[in-house]
Amino acid sequence: MTTAIHKAPAAAWNPDPVREVAERLKGLDGPLLPILHAINEQFGYVDERALPIIADMLNLTRAEVQGVVSFYHDFRRAPAGRHVVKVCRAEACQSMGAERLIGELEKSFGVTLGETSTDGRVTLEAVYCLGNCALSPAALIDGKLFGRLDAAKAQAQVSK
């Protein structure tokens, strides 16, 4: 989920929490997305090695699980930076200068949209609407929603 915040480097790989999560949620109707969300949140991403475990526990093929993980923008394949800035580049935010803001953020974080800075400090990503379109431009910074955002405010938030 978008609320995942990862201050510490991702914990070393350990299959046990994956099994625990899958065990706990597999009784739901349609359990795969809830399981992937829980893992994405707990680890900060969905590790390759989690896929066969989940597949096995849900009686799916590994390819099926892989296909689901790759379909959805939320599921990360690698850990994110310590701060995640998801900036809206949909139409309402465009009308209030989202493209300019993205350019400024790229500069001030030293990163290209869609990537993590080399020091692992910030991941900058595009999203398409956060439901804050009357207070554009908007972004989610470490899971917190901001409206009427400018580069200085975003920088201050990430420096906290």
Binding site: T2, L33, P34, H37, Y72, H73, D74, F75
Partner: peptide, 8 residues
């Protein structure tokens, strides 16, 4: 409640 995963 079920949660989407970022796909329009």
């Amino acid at each position: 409640i079920r949660i989407g995963a970022g796909a329009y």
